[in-house]
């Protein structure tokens, strides 16, 4: 793991009687994409706002680039790019002007800034929309503009707070690919989301938050290894009676079996692979099979097992 870019230690933040962050400690290493995953209200945005010195907090310390973060730490802020959860642009400025304005808050030299702005426009695929006003842009393009405004000054650390909320799948893929490219170019990324697929796709390390606490952290493989669940299969077009179903449920390595609408769904335990055995059992009992689907455990399954609730709250 590289040098720590963000180091949060024992952070406590309360809103009245509600504890939003409960002794939170984590570290973001240089060159990684760290995913903060959790349902709405789990404390992801609060943690980011504390890191950015926008919010007061009751206890704890936050260091960025090895120095204490504060509202007046302009030398630290100069190397941070922030993509807010909500689109934060000016409706009266064009795409180009918005990017140039926000980039200009970091890069004062116009000659240096100009290629940066052009690069951000190209990077986010907004070349054809540079003279458009935000009101004329679709939701996906607006999000891309939001990202361009946050990254145009080529920051070393990029903090992205759910940048793909309400974005169509095509734009989402575009954004995620872009984040991977930024990381490849050397930026460290702290990425929050409640979409487990996104985090699985781009993050090298993941922290799962719930009620302001870290309930699990590690690579996606490490997280999945924490749970008992194994592969899930679904066999369609089968006819089963109660006797056969009872026999299937009692087979070794099967955690759950369910039969509904001529489809059999079986969840196996992580250890061992009973899929082949089950298929042989069905064939031996003269059961004809239609389509067969197989699914490995997801972070949602991890979250479900750790907290007992769905990730998308």
């Amino acid at each position: 793991m590289g040098n720590p870019v963000i180091n949060v230690v024992d952070l406590v933040k309360k809103y009245g009687n509600l504890t939003a962050l409960d002794h939170l400690s984590f570290m973001v290493a240089e060159g990684e994409i760290l995913g903060l995953l959790g349902p709405n209200g789990s404390g992801k945005t609060t943690a980011i706002n504390c890191i950015l010195s926008l919010l007061k907090f009751e206890k704890g310390s936050i260091e960025v680039f090895g120095r204490q973060m504060s509202p007046d730490a302009y030398d630290i802020k100069r190397d941070i790019g922030v993509v807010m959860q909500n689109v934060a642009v000016f409706n009266e400025l064009t795409v180009y002007e918005n990017i140039d304005y926000f980039c200009g808050l970091y890069v004062h030299d116009k000659a240096v800034r100009k290629p940066y702005v052009e690069e951000a426009i190209t990077f986010t695929g907004l070349k054809d929309f540079r003279k458009f006003y935000p009101k004329k842009l679709s939701g996906g393009l607006l999000r891309r503009l939001n990202i361009a405004c946050g990254i145009a000054h080529k920051p070393k650390l990029i903090i992205m707070d759910e940048p793909t909320v309400a974005v169509d799948p095509q734009s989402r893929n575009n954004i995620l690919e872009g984040i991977k490219r930024l990381n490849k170019n050397g930026a460290t990324v702290l990425y929050t989301s409640h979409y487990m697929e996104e985090v699985e796709l781009i993050c090298s390390r993941i922290i799962i938050l719930d009620k302001g606490k870290i309930i699990a952290s590690g690579t996606k493989q490490e997280l999945k290894a924490m749970i008992e669940l194994g592969e899930k299969i679904r066999v369609e077009g089968v006819s089963l009676d109660d006797v056969l179903m009872e026999k299937i449920k009692n087979r070794p390595g099967i955690l759950v079996a369910d039969y509904r609408d001529r489809a059999l769904e079986v969840r196996f335990a992580r250890e061992g692979n009973g899929v082949l055995g089950l298929l042989n059992f069905l064939r031996d009992n003269g059961i004809e099979m239609g389509r067969l689907y197989s699914e490995m455990p997801t972070l949602n399954d991890v979250f479900l097992e750790l907290t007992g609730k769905e990730l998308r709250d």
């Binding site: 802020k77 807010m84 689109v87 934060a88 808050l105």
Partner: peptide, 16 residues
């Protein structure tokens, strides 16, 4: 920052 999104973005920039 607590009133507008633009305010939040400006508040995290290195501007007094």
């Amino acid at each position: 920052a607590d009133i507008s999104y633009q305010g939040a973005r400006v508040s995290v920039a290195p501007v007094h």
